[in-house]
Design a protein around this nucleic acid. Structure first.
Length: 94
DNA sequence: TATCTGACGATAG
DNA sequence: CCTATCGCCAGAT
């Protein structure tokens, strides 16, 4: 069914993410063919493993609630700058 | 089949 | 900038 294909596509998209890449849940949902299903994407990511989930953040750049610590560590390893619980969009005046 | 849940997103206060 | 609320979607029970 459509929903099944959707979840399949979501996994494919996340698996295709490369180091240094950063996308939002809404982005993944849209690329999976279901814009607006950002929430469903998060649901799928939570139950799946072996995927670069840390390369996916919320639309506002907020890190995953409950895993902020680990999430931040992964992103920093990819070369991103984390401030508080958010990915810094751009380094600006300190 | 009905209902609840949640790693979201946008808007309002 | 932060919290609260509503709307949306797929999965689980």
């Amino acid at each position: 069914m459509a929903a099944d294909d959707f979840s399949r596509r979501v996994y494919a998209v996340v698996r295709s993410l490369e180091p240094g890449d950063l996308v939002s849940y809404g982005d993944v949902a849209a690329q999976a063919g279901r814009p607006g299903a950002a929430r469903a994407v998060g649901r799928l990511m939570a139950g799946s493993d072996g995927l670069p989930w840390w390369r996916v953040v919320t639309s506002t750049g907020r890190l995953v609630p409950g895993l902020e610590r680990e999430h931040a560590a992964h992103l920093e390893s990819e070369g991103f700058t984390i401030r508080g619980n958010r990915v810094v969009p751009d380094d600006r005046v300190s």
